[in-house]
Design a protein around this nucleic acid. Structure first.
Length: 675
DNA sequence: TTTAGGG
DNA sequence: CCCTAAA
């Protein structure tokens, strides 16, 4: 139930994804000794069936069927999950990103025939303990663009994956899988001609909404991407809205954000509320106009414009969520998909290269597991978040200039260099000299409380056009899992994979290499050849798990704490914000915080209507107490007076309304009873 | 989802 | 700011 819900949210509520799944009994399989034995058999059978399969079908591939595939299990220890939905989600987002014109997103495609041989490759492997391994593997099917992950569990480091039944392009082979990765890094399935684009047409709004997240998710989805989030799309979308009078209108991105937040916070799911489209617009009513003495001016708080003027400006924003949060996000749709390397082009300018090169920062992993025998704490970083780019340009700016700005912004970030921060329980560990043990990072601990952050080296950015917002925040990453103390570099050793070897393509990578060795390591780990699995210690796989997979295989059942959400960073209201708030409340009254939010804090994503309401509450309180008792940034008395005035007015107003309502209700009741 | 109010 | 009941 929860799982389902999450998925739906993660994919913008797409409900038409009929994702076939194997019975829960399969997914929940517990590994036993028998599993181990079966695991042995499995490999052989796989090869056998595979060979037959290769002979059998040449190329006919009904993609829909293949992905649905029956679940005739070869090994009894097979758990399968279908990620096609995610892939689809990505496509939508991606395509939308292209169509929305803030950048030209073109997805390269390789020779598809090359992909025909598409094999399942073992993408990620997680060791939960010395006796169990979870393999999360995918097979790619370019025909439909689906990614078909298979999660298997076996014991003793043995593993097997289940080839897609009926899928000609399934093959059980790990090292071939590596090759595939290699091949596909030069391009990926043409998304335009897949069904993802159809969905786009169906739901433009949704598509639009998913632009940001989609773009953002590129990075984590395709681990060699640079994740770049651009806000301008939905900002624009919102600002195009000419009035606030539609109560039913909800900026999609915000909703998505809320959803995520909700996901993080909710312990239970409620039925979705109905849209109240028929609701009478509240803010525009004549009643308001005539009665509200405050309604005159419109003060729109825009944190950006207010401080930077209307000219071109860019600034960076960073994700302020700690990894603790991200451990949740990790289960979300965004960073889950394991897909072969792909490339993105944003124009032909340098950005593409930057994006590509920066891919190193990504990696994926899920939850931690560890060997209690050795005292090494093993980490694996699921993915780093890259600073979000916040771009605001005049409408009459050219697309070219926009591109340039984006490029500059990205370049500036990358040039600035990065630092790594470590978070434990959402708190930054500043003392570099502390041991992990002292920090609370023992192998016995839940490592999901650990987070790494990428912190831009702002010092070097002085020449950049970027201004940093607030405090330099971190780009949280999802940490997840274990990395052996002396990890092998499968990339170099195997020689198969050069995806991760892209590092030197840009300055970024070398930087990152220097500063984030861990990340590099874990990144490469993703592609461990299976033989490395034999060495439990050397195993540093990074499983990208879907939420479902996660549900299937509770990686760390003990860690309920992983759901602990870090408290939001405190962000005191500035005077200008207060002013905007007061202004809005004067006009709209208390009790309409959503409208207030849209009116005055449209672009201040970090201010929720609840925040505004709370702030108003404290403002009223502040206004009532003596100036000596007030703390924090002093609010001009004039504003406080207005607060009191407005509060008094609206309280009265509300009371009136209330009594009216009451009367009306009474009348109605009387009428009803008299009939 | 939004509002309202306590913590 | 968080949490959550209630709408």
């Amino acid at each position: 139930m929860v799982m389902k819900k999450r998925l739906d949210n993660g994919f913008n509520g797409l409900s038409d994804w009929t994702v076939p799944r194997c019975p829960r009994s399969f997914r929940k399989r517990v590994h036993s000794k028998k599993d181990f034995e079966d695991g042995q058999i499995c490999a052989i059978e796989l090869l056998a069936s595979l060979a037959g399969k290769l002979l059998q079908d040449g190329e006919s591939t009904a993609c829909s069927n293949t992905s649905d595939g029956d679940h005739s299990v070869i090994g009894t220890n097979v758990v399968k999950e279908d990620k096609s939905n995610q892939e689809k989600g990505f496509k939508e987002k991606c395509c939308d990103g292209g169509s929305s014109q803030s950048c030209d997103l073109a997805i390269e495609t390789t020779d598809q025939k090359q992909n025909l041989k598409k094999l399942q490759y073992v993408d990620n492997i997680t060791v939960f303990d010395c006796t169990s391994v979870v393999v999360n593997s995918n097979s790619s099917d370019e025909a439909c663009g689906d990614v078909k992950p298979v999660v298997c569990k076996t014991e003793f480091g043995d593993y097997c994956t289940k080839p897609e039944e009926g899928s000609p392009d399934s093959l059980e082979s790990t090292d071939t899988g590596m090759k595939i990765i290699n091949e596909e890094q030069h391009g990926f399935p043409n998304m335009a001609d897949s069904h993802g684009s159809k969905d786009l047409k169906k739901s433009p709004t949704m598509a639009n909404s998913s632009f940001k997240t989609g773009f953002r998710s590129l990075f984590s989805r395709y681990r060699n991407y640079f994740k770049l989030a651009s806000r301008d799309e939905d900002e624009k979308f919102r600002s195009n809205k000419s009035s606030f009078h539609s109560n039913s209108f909800r900026p999609p991105s915000r909703i998505a954000g809320r959803r995520i937040r909700k996901l993080l916070n909710s312990k239970h799911w409620k039925a979705a509320p109905k849209l109240k489209d028929c609701e009478v617009p509240r803010s525009g009513s004549i009643d308001d106009e005539t009665r509200n003495p405050f309604r005159k001016r419109k003060l729109y708080f825009n944190s950006e414009r207010r401080f930077h003027g209307d000219g071109l400006y860019k600034r960076r924003r960073f994700f302020d969520r700690s990894s603790v949060v991200n451990s949740d996000e990790g289960m979300s749709s965004e960073s889950v998909s394991n897909s072969p390397e792909k490339s993105i082009h944003i124009d032909k300018s340098g950005l593409a290269a930057v994006l590509h090169g920066a891919s190193v920062t990504t990696s994926s992993a899920q939850q931690a597991s560890f060997h209690s025998k050795d005292s090494h704490v093993k980490f694996s970083i699921r993915s780093f978040k890259v600073p979000e780019l916040f771009i605001d340009v005049p409408e009459n700016a050219t697309v070219g200039s926009l591109k340039k700005i984006v490029l500059e912004a990205v370049t500036a970030i990358l040039k600035g260099g990065l630092h790594v921060g470590v978070l434990v329980h959402g708190k930054k560990v500043r003392d570099d000299n502390r041991t992990l043990l002292q920090t609370g990072l023992s192998c016995k601990d839940n490592l999901d409380t650990v987070g790494f952050t990428l912190e831009p080296n702002l010092v070097h950015n002085t020449t950049s056009p970027l201004c940093s917002e607030d405090h330099p925040q971190m780009l949280a990453c999802d940490i997840t899992e274990l990395v052996p103390s002396s990890p092998v570099n499968p990339v170099s050793s195997s020689g198969i994979l050069d995806v991760v070897a892209l590092p030197n393509t840009t300055l970024t990578n070398s930087k990152i290499q220097d500063e984030n060795k861990h990340e590099l390591i874990t990144t490469s780990i993703d592609n461990l050849p299976d033989n490395s699995l034999q060495d439990c210690k050397a195993l540093v796989p990074v499983p990208e798990m879907t939420m479902e997979a996660l549900a299937v295989v509770p990686l760390n059942p003990k860690s309920k704490r992983s759901e602990v959400v870090q408290r939001r960073t405190r962000r005191p209201f500035s005077v200008s914000e207060v002013e905007a708030l007061v202004q809005a409340v004067e006009e709209l009254g208390t009790g309409r915080w959503r409208d207030v939010k849209f009116r005055a804090f449209e672009n201040a994503d970090h201010r929720t209507y609840v925040d505004l309401k709370d702030k108003w509450k404290t403002l009223v309180h502040t206004a009532r107490i003596s100036p000596q008792q007030r703390r924090g940034e002093p609010v001009p008395q004039e504003l406080l007076d207005r607060v009191l005035a407005a509060h008094a007015y609206w309280s009265q107003h509300q009371a009136k309304q209330h009594s009216k309502h009451h009367q009306a209700g009474v009348v109605k009741a009387i009428e009803g009873s008299s009939c």
